[in-house]
Design a protein around this nucleic acid. Structure first.
Lengths: 351, 351
DNA sequence: GATCCAGACTGAATCGATTTAGAGAGGTGT
DNA sequence: ACACCTCTCTAAATCGATTCAGTCTGGATC
């Protein structure tokens, strides 16, 4: 049985309070006694106040939870998520706060309980794609949180660090449209839930549940509408997951079809890289491809993409959580994005 | 003020115990009453038992700590560390256990307190390079832990998932020696603490404090000793950190010197990639380069390297922590490594 | 009809600390 | 010599749950 604070108190012959003060408030006792207490603690092997007991009494934990859209182990395979996390970690370091990565089971009930059982002071929600249950559960506990996009039922006090998805996507699409492309495919992951990979019949962008994907698709559509290509003329492709293989798989059938697109606009770089893989393996006339995020691999692959500041997003989100600005308006941060044109986009080939 | 379990008990007109049981032991009360309790809880907005209080009483937390050699934010920029983490996350998911990433301040005292204040059931220590204070602190709390290498003061009950560093490094060096290289440089990061980047005078490998680096340098040295190149004839280069730029910086002076090495053996892929950068920028005769880890970028760069299973390392380490094998011998896992020969190594050019 | 038992629920101790209000000792100013 | 501080340190309430050892009720058994 590990010694407790009580044991130290007994050994030194002082009260519990004094031992507690020796650790947490050195100014409350004489330096000599403090030293004696700490020395005795060392001798009997007391490792310092129990973190759990301390948290219970103090009412805060010193850790913030990080919630990911999908599997925790997946998050580490997504370059953008990793950079986001790096940013969060930077802010956490400054605040001497730990990060609790909470794995969420597949079922909503279990996931909800996981959120309810996390010992944290607040949550950093990587993606507002979480159906409202996550935010519900967090609010139910009265905990603060930040997201990476305005939430649907946004109170004026909620905070986020995100980008203007629609405008950013518009920039990429406008570039492609400017190159003359009119027969294009839009590629996203889990555009609609429980839908097979490949071409999707989507009446309206508004039907897409995931706000990020919805915003980007809307931005793509805006740009094409401006050049006279209406929504129904656009092909929407669904990938089963946000990774390279899924991107390749989703696009293959479309490329093999009778009227393949001359350009594919993807909602993320990893999907776009998958498209490049599929193109390389299929041969055929050149197809322009754009991605989103500008991860490291994008530069190497010559992928035209929309850059967003990944680390900043994480860092600022965590900062917003850890010391909330006095002015609620300052809780809504829009980060800059930039179209990065590389070799993967070019004019429509003459057929 | 959030409602407590007591409030629910009062509202329903039962005892605290019963409400507690409604959440944690459904078999201890009638289904009807349980439903009534849960419903009332919902009505008055009780979010379920407080995780902190529960942890205190139950004596366990449901989270394991992950400790990194250096800055937490750095860990996310190191591809190998990220893959390790992905493995840890996989095991954590299976056990429905959370991961607590604990940022460590620069000072040892502060770092020690950070370890002592972490609310976790055990620790996964990414690198035994942590001077013993970390393991001391963990043991002082009586918590279980696993490392990625046998620790110096290894009790028979400690657990680790690692590789045979020395043998693995030997393989790389033997390959380079077999190509005829005799004038070689060994490159590691923080080979000696508080030492500037560049060439290092190192009397014996045993002086290197970091066990991983020590093991790899020893393995390199073994292979060259076998072909008659003694330790003093080997150049040891020190990098200020484990990243690409530091690798490049560490090797520059040596390349510009009068008798540059014909091969550079690095203790990690990121350092080796830095060496390739420096070579590309310097021009000059070809220099063979080997790395260690086989991260994704290594393949793209054509880097000869020693592959080690990063995700497995993390996953197995976490498994060892989360459900310890009955047989203590099973707590020592050595993972396979493999020399991957690519274009970055070749015969010594005729001068 | 007495006994026994299973099921449903309660009481009270307990986990290990923090913190507020206040007690007692010793020193200062007038 | 008295009131008044300042310094140290203590007592006791408190944080919010879990759990062991019962108690009580109603039905089955012999």
């Amino acid at each position: 049985m590990k010694p407790t604070l009580q044991a130290v108190a007994d050994a030194v012959g002082v009260s519990r309070s004094t031992v507690s003060n020796a650790y947490a408030r050195p100014d409350q006792l004489s330096a000599a006694l403090r030293e004696r207490i700490l020395e005795t603690a060392r001798q009997i092997g007391y490792p310092g106040p129990d973190p759990t007991a301390r948290s219970l009494r103090r009412g805060f934990v010193g850790a913030v939870g990080v919630l990911f859209t999908s599997q925790l182990s997946y998050a580490f395979t997504d370059p953008f998520a990793v950079r986001f996390l790096a940013g969060v970690a930077t802010a956490a370091e400054r605040h001497r706060t730990s990060l609790l990565l909470v794995p969420l089971p597949d079922d909503v009930a279990g996931a909800r309980r996981a959120v309810e059982n996390a010992a944290v002071d607040g949550f950093c929600v990587y993606c507002a794609g979480h159906e409202s249950w996550a935010l519900d559960a967090i609010c139910g506990r009265g905990l603060p949180f930040v997201t990476t996009a305005p939430s649907a039922d946004a109170g004026p006090n909620d905070r986020y660090a995100g980008i203007d998805e629609r405008a950013a996507a518009h920039a990429a699409a406008a570039h492609v449209a400017g190159l003359g492309h009119r027969r294009v495919a839009l590629l996203g992951d889990t555009v609609l839930p429980d839908t097979p990979a490949g071409r999707l019949r989507l009446t309206a962008v508004a039907d897409v549940p995931h706000p990020t994907t919805r915003g980007r698709l809307a931005g793509f559509a805006d740009a094409f509408a401006e050049v006279g290509v209406a929504w129904p003329e656009l092909t929407v492709l669904n990938a089963s997951a946000n990774n390279r293989a899924a991107g390749a798989a989703a696009v293959r059938a479309a490329l093999a079809g009778p009227t393949p697109p001359t350009a594919v606009l993807a909602c993320s770089d990893v999907l776009a890289l998958g498209v490049l893989d599929a193109l390389a393996e299929a041969g055929g006339p050149p197809v322009s491809v754009t991605g989103f995020d500008d991860i490291a691999e994008a530069a190497a692959a010559g992928l035209t993409t929309v850059r967003q500041p990944a680390e900043d997003k994480g860092r600022i989100a965590a900062q917003l959580l850890l010391d909330p600005p006095a002015d609620p308006a300052a809780g809504h941060v829009l980060l800059p994005t930039e179209l990065v044109v590389r070799a993967s986009t070019g004019p429509v080939p003459r057929s």
